[in-house]
């Protein structure tokens, strides 16, 4: 049982690490500020989610597990909201050249 849980943790955490890596690669390769913002927000949040998922399998205390989830949700909420602010700032607060 514990072995199976360990395996699940291993998989999820490794996947989480992979997405952090992908996010960083995105940061390095993407050509403009806004695209880099995509890489940062989406990949890293998924990475964190997977790591939290992996850690859940190790938790004995249900409260501690819920707390991890709460931290992740808070990060998601905060990340989602702040991303818009940064995007707005990256555009310099003006309307962009828009293609529909």
């Amino acid at each position: 049982m514990s072995l199976a849980l360990d395996a699940l943790t291993f998989l999820a955490v490794a996947a989480g690490g992979f997405f952090f890596l992908a996010g960083t690669v995105g940061l390095l390769r993407f050509p403009d500020t806004l695209s880099r913002l995509h890489a940062l927000t989406k990949a890293d949040n998924l990475g964190l989610g997977l790591i939290v998922l992996g850690l859940l399998f190790q938790m004995e205390d249900p409260f501690a597990a819920l707390k991890l989830v709460a931290v992740w949700l808070l990060t998601l909420l905060a990340g989602g909201a702040v991303t818009q602010l940064i995007a707005h700032a990256a555009l310099g607060g003006r309307s962009a050249g828009v293609t529909t």
Binding site: F20, L27, T33, L40, D44, G47, L55, T75, V82, I86
Partner: peptide, 19 residues
């Protein structure tokens, strides 16, 4: 705007490390 992302990056990454 690029530099501003540092807080986000370290926020998410730092949280993952801490957990």
């Amino acid at each position: 705007a690029d530099r501003i992302m540092a807080a986000q990056l370290l926020g998410t990454g730092g949280i993952a490390t801490l957990l």
